[in-house]
């Protein structure tokens, strides 16, 4: 099923920013600095297991349960 990556990214950003638009933007930048460019993924993006694993690892670092 494609689209898992953007689903995880959106969830991570939503939880971490808690509806604050400024924190949403900051969290996107933090992800980019960690090597995840949210703009590259859509609901039809392939489910690359390496990227999915990386997002889970980042979510753990950022204290977000996905």
């Amino acid at each position: 099923m494609p689209g898992k990556i953007i689903e995880l990214i959106d969830k991570l950003i939503e939880v971490r920013s808690n509806g604050n638009p400024s924190l949403e933007s900051t969290t996107r930048t933090k992800l980019l600095l960690k090597g995840i460019d949210a703009r590259k993924y859509t609901s039809s993006s392939e489910d690359d297991p390496v990227i999915i694993e990386k997002i889970y690892q980042i979510s753990e670092e950022m204290c977000v349960k996905l």
């Binding site: 971490r16 900051t26 600095l33 670092e61 204290c63």
Partner: peptide, 15 residues
């Protein structure tokens, strides 16, 4: 710098 800023950014939302 990167490691410190990343780790601080992980556990802090403040600027």
């Amino acid at each position: 710098e990167e490691k410190v800023m990343e780790r601080l950014g992980d556990i802090l939302n403040i600027t």
